[in-house]
């Protein structure tokens, strides 16, 4: 009887382990949970996080349709997100992962835009949101931030 219980527990643990693996996708190196920080904290002062790797987590809200080369993670703050960007082919994020949770370790990258590119980007965002946009209202160039991952875990 005792042996049967032990067998049952071992089987259950094996099944649990299998089920966890079956519902998670791993890309690159393992993620480092010790470096976990909220996306809202990072986005509040992104320049402070450029030097060393960080780990963030959030719901996947968008994925590159053609190559799976980027995805966006929802921030813990409303209306905010962070883009995760890889070189084409380094990691391929599945479109069907939208709505799943992802944990990502990587380095934050700052891209300084020109005024022209800033206007183009904001115009594109406004068009996607179905809002009107006045290019003359933009007078300063902005920087965008994206995380270049070394490891990604997607949990279904």
């Amino acid at each position: 009887m005792f042996l049967k219980s032990k067998t049952f527990i071992a089987f259950s643990l094996a099944l649990l382990s299998f089920s966890q693996h079956a519902f998670s996708l791993q890309f690159g190196n393992p993620v480092d949970s010790d470096k976990l920080i909220k996306i809202s904290t990072v986005m509040a002062s992104p320049d402070d996080y450029l030097a060393s790797p960080i780990t963030v987590e959030g719901t996947i809200t968008g994925v590159c349709e053609k190559r799976g080369c980027w995805m966006t993670l929802a921030s813990d703050k409303r209306f905010e997100n962070l883009r995760i960007k890889v070189e084409d082919g380094d990691m391929v994020f599945p479109m069907t992962a939208k709505g799943s949770k992802a944990i990502v370790t990587g380095k934050l990258d700052k891209i300084q835009l020109s005024l022209g590119r800033t206007k183009a980007l904001l115009a594109h965002k406004a068009q996607q949101a179905g809002e009107s946009f006045d290019a003359n209202s933009v007078t300063e160039a902005m920087a965008i931030y994206q995380l270049v991952p070394s490891g990604v875990e997607i949990i279904e």
Partner: peptide, 14 residues
């Protein structure tokens, strides 16, 4: 699976 406010004008359900 999840939901997300993209903007004050857009809400997504996954």
């Amino acid at each position: 699976k999840a939901s997300y406010w993209v903007s004050p004008q857009e809400f997504k359900v996954f």
